[in-house]
């Protein structure tokens, strides 16, 4: 009787230890920030969060939604976020500038970046861009347009482009910077038909850079590689779930957007998720799933150096750490 009691207590203690381990006690706190608004562009992360995948991997995650008013780069630098998403070019620039960031997973393999003109402004070929007013986002999003203009020896009038496309829609600029998965569809939903537009995909002009990737500081990776690996794995699981259940994923994103009072609609988010799936899973371009291709890395570095965005470029193995199992 007595021995039985002790045994029971022992078992209960063991169980409760195990439970706390899975639930909270040993859940590691971490923060994550996206480099843009909580769109379907980041659906995988939000799905992983909502579906409890981070918890499953032992992370008590806080997601800091991106915004035009705060940069994930600064949050990472200032230690306000443990993990961030960044474009590869941003990562290279940060590393080149001395901040020891590392890419621990590459999400977007193919580039969705583009320039768009209305056909009514007489732009049908790349050379038609000459002397036109072109809306460009701030660095590092002006890197590839600059590289393109240099490549074709085109002089343009650069107008800083804000988060909205209204200047372009009203005719204030002839061309606008756009992501195929976002701004392009916004134009369609503002009453422009695809046949009324001339798109220039950078990937068609030798500028297919890998884009969204997961970054952290090298110190963090060194100090807690398990956390980093857990974060990467949970995120990847989230992405695969989102691609397999787009409606579910869009529901999650839409709720976030509604709660944040960010104007959004389902058709747009669904479009975005579809394109993200295409850019992420279709590895015809730069590299295999979740990995940073060396070729894409070298291409990006080369263009950055050529334009003079950076003076020296980091080594591939210095910037990219493959955490896959």
């Amino acid at each position: 009787m007595r021995s039985l009691k002790i045994g029971t207590v022992l078992i209960l203690v063991l169980i409760s230890l195990g439970l706390t381990d899975a639930r909270g006690k040993s859940l590691k706190k971490a923060s994550f920030m996206t480099h843009w608004l909580p769109h379907a562009q980041f659906a995988g992360f939000y799905v992983a969060y909502e579906k409890g995948l981070y918890k499953k991997h032992g992370i008590d995650l806080t997601i800091i939604p991106g915004s035009p008013n705060r940069s994930s780069y600064e949050y990472l630098r200032d230690g306000k976020a443990d993990f961030v998403t960044l474009w590869l070019s941003s990562g290279i620039k940060m590393r080149a500038e001395g901040l020891k960031v590392v890419n621990i997973s590459q999400i977007v393999q193919r580039s969705g970046f583009m320039l768009i003109a209305k056909k009514t402004s007489g732009i049908n070929t790349i050379l038609d861009i000459r002397n036109k007013k072109v809306g460009l986002w701030a660095a590092p999003f002006d890197l590839r347009p600059m590289a393109l203009f240099l490549k074709y020896d085109i002089k343009v009038k650069v107008v800083p482009q804000s988060a909205s496309l209204n200047l372009f829609l009203r005719g204030g600029v002839h061309m606008a910077s756009a992501m195929y998965y976002n701004e392009y569809h916004t134009l369609l939903n503002s009453g422009l038909d695809s046949h009324e537009l001339t798109p220039f995909f950078f990937r068609d002009y030798g500028l297919d850079f890998p884009e969204d990737g997961i970054y952290t500081l090298e110190d963090r990776l060194t100090s807690d590689p398990d956390l980093c690996r857990a974060f990467v794995n949970a995120s990847q699981e989230g992405w695969l779930y989102a691609f397999a259940n787009p409606d579910d994923a869009v529901d999650i994103v839409m709720k976030l957007l509604r709660d944040a009072h960010i104007p959004a609609n389902r058709v747009h988010q669904k479009w975005m998720l579809e394109q993200m799936r295409d850019l992420t899973l279709r590895d015809t371009g730069s590299g295999p799933l979740w990995k940073l291709s060396k070729e894409g890395f070298i291409r990006t570095c080369g263009e950055m150096k050529r334009i003079g965005f950076v003076e020296r470029v980091p080594d591939y193995n210095e910037l990219y750490k493959d955490l896959s199992r």
């Binding site: 804000s162 209204n166 200047l167 009203r170 204030g172």
Partner: peptide
């Protein structure tokens, strides 16, 4: 927008 569009247009 409120500044830029008016300026550019």
């Amino acid at each position: 927008d409120w500044y830029q569009i008016s300026k550019e247009l």
